[in-house]
Design a protein around this nucleic acid. Structure first.
Lengths: 337, 337
DNA sequence: TTATTACCCGCAAACGTTTGCGGTTACGAT
DNA sequence: ATCGTAACCGCAAACGTTTGCGGGTAATAA
């Protein structure tokens, strides 16, 4: 049987004084005599008194807690975002409650409910791949709980957002391939209901357009995993329409393509140049090493949290919503040069 | 200004009834008439009433929350453990508060304090590399809060623990190298204050012993990162004492060694066979693919959480503490065969 | 008519804190 | 002897819930 932890009342009882006095003594209130303060803090120490954060939250109507909803922790990008979030929240004395949506809409809605019930003071979310309805996010807003979206944004939502410039990064990646003399560049694209999927495709298209290369719809293939890339490459090989460049929506997809091509005897980057979009620590360990876009996950986490805390801590949080666009760097490595 | 969320009192006021009645109505208590119940649940719905979890926790002295202290989220192994934990906690209606120690002892102690203040009902921890003093863990126990350690155990601690059989896995990995005809096998070891570091080394030594190979202290090198492995390999090359097999304490170290050797013109596995210890998704994407020990992180997370919940939910949690040893599988790939 | 019963509902205390306000004591000053 | 004034401290309400108990009303039974 779990014995409940020691409370202010326990201290009061043992010292024969009231709970109020104990409370004030612990807060070093001037009304309390040095002697009493001494006794109280000593006993508190001995009993390992820990203020009950729940009671405090209830009393102060401030939980000092923020919520995080993230698609899947097991991705290098997301987990580095979490690190950024944790660090600045911790610094500000906030506790983070992390929920995974597992890329499921239903779970995401449930997560929102949990966090609201816990009375978190603000919520950070990166929506799941499935999410098309945003009612639950509007619900957050209409309860006046600050909300910041990161990475996967929702256009038109009245909330702060921080994203990377996916379009531009994709544009630069594709342009880099073009400048390397590639003409027939295939894009392995992500889900098109996610803005990042759309943006990366657009950047790709823009680069082609500017270079005067006609975009071929057959060069855009929805494939965002190692396996899908492998299958797509097989089909390209069978069709005999081999590209000389590939821009993939993430690293694992790029690597899937690369390894499959290599297995078929093609040389990277001589025959086909490949560029990915960073979601892991893979870039350095493939052969050749993989050119990729660095998304600066940790930084995104810190910035998003700072925006959230600013909203939480400002009494007059009636300043306009902001969308911060982070710069992403193209890191050129062996797979494309 | 954040308007506080709607409470049971708001509903009561609007309906001209008491808070108790609203509470009972929402719980479908038989004392309340169908009509009232109808009105209450309707209004609750309209107002998007969400019970205040903080108040409930305080009242029931049950927070329905568990705490997790983990060294660093940005490791595939740990993040997959988290997924396992989250899934079973969620299933049981528990919320998880995740804290990162960042491999720092001080931060770990602070984390314990936070979690205890939040009155979590149980704590899962994998200690940091720095941790040598276990007072904070004893403090958890002496407040009768259930505690489960995973992956990195503390021998002699009165708590449930779940680990993998590091010694045996290391033994099998090394033996696999020996069976492949290797004799001069170097071990890149982890920190020796962590049990997993010790155990993996022991398994390595045991395999050598059984095979009648004299262990050479110079073959055991403390190196547990890509960089350290690279430097260690350089030194080995300079010393002209090239091994024919390497067993590394984790994958990244193994890969560091492998790539450095390859750069120096050596062939894997012909010249040197390499086996790692899985901490990422790297094994499939190196060239050759990396033999490694699969640690089953997700499974470890689920099991640890089940053990914790069992303690939490059993009234008479006076059954003996248990240390579960999970089996880890050696996955043989190209780097060693 | 009166007593019984069933059916609804509200009061108040409690969970662990904080805090405004008021009260008691002792002491020096008038 | 009375007053003023510090210096300390306790009472009680409040945060949002739940829950034991008691109370009221109306219908039914005697």
């Amino acid at each position: 049987m779990k014995k409940s932890q020691v409370t202010i009342k326990d201290i009061a009882r043992q010292l024969g004084i009231s709970a109020s006095t104990v409370s004030r003594a612990l807060q070093n209130h001037p009304d309390i005599s040095q002697e009493t303060k001494q006794q109280v803090s000593e006993l508190a120490m001995r009993l390992r008194y820990q203020p009950n954060a729940l009671a405090l939250s209830l009393k102060h109507r401030r939980s000092k807690t923020i919520g995080l909803i993230i698609p899947e922790i097991v991705h290098y990008f997301f987990s580095s975002v979490i690190s950024g979030i944790e660090d600045v929240a911790y610094e500000a004395g906030f506790t983070v409650i992390i929920c995974q949506s597992n890329e499921k809409y239903d779970r995401e809605v449930a997560n929102v409910k949990t966090l609201m019930a816990q009375r978190v003071e603000g919520i950070l979310v990166s929506i799941s791949k499935e999410t098309n309805d945003y009612q639950h996010l509007h619900d957050i807003r209409s309860s006046d709980t600050p909300l910041v979206l990161f990475d996967r944004m929702v256009p038109g939502l009245l909330a702060d957002q921080v994203i990377i410039d996916d379009r531009e990064a994709a544009y630069r990646a594709t342009r880099h391939l073009i400048e390397g003399g590639r003409r027939k560049i295939v894009h392995f694209a992500g889900p098109q209901n996610l803005l990042i999927g759309q943006q990366r495709k657009e950047g790709y298209l823009q680069a082609l357009r500017e270079a005067g290369i006609a975009a071929n719809p057959e060069w855009i293939i929805e494939a965002d995993s190692f396996e899908k890339a492998r299958n797509a490459v097989f089909r390209l090989l069978e069709a005999g329409s081999l590209p000389d460049g590939i821009f993939a929506v993430n690293d694992l997809t790029a690597i899937g393509a690369m390894k499959t091509l290599q297995k078929k005897g093609l040389r990277i980057p001589t025959d086909v140049a490949v560029v990915g979009f960073s979601d892991g620590r893979f870039s350095g360990i493939t052969d050749p090493s993989l050119s990729s876009v660095d998304q600066h996950g940790y930084e995104m986490g810190t910035i998003a949290t700072e925006m959230l805390l600013k909203r939480i801590l400002s009494k007059e949080n009636e300043y306009p919503f902001e969308t911060k666009v982070l710069h992403a760097d193209l890191i050129v490595r062996g797979s494309s040069s």
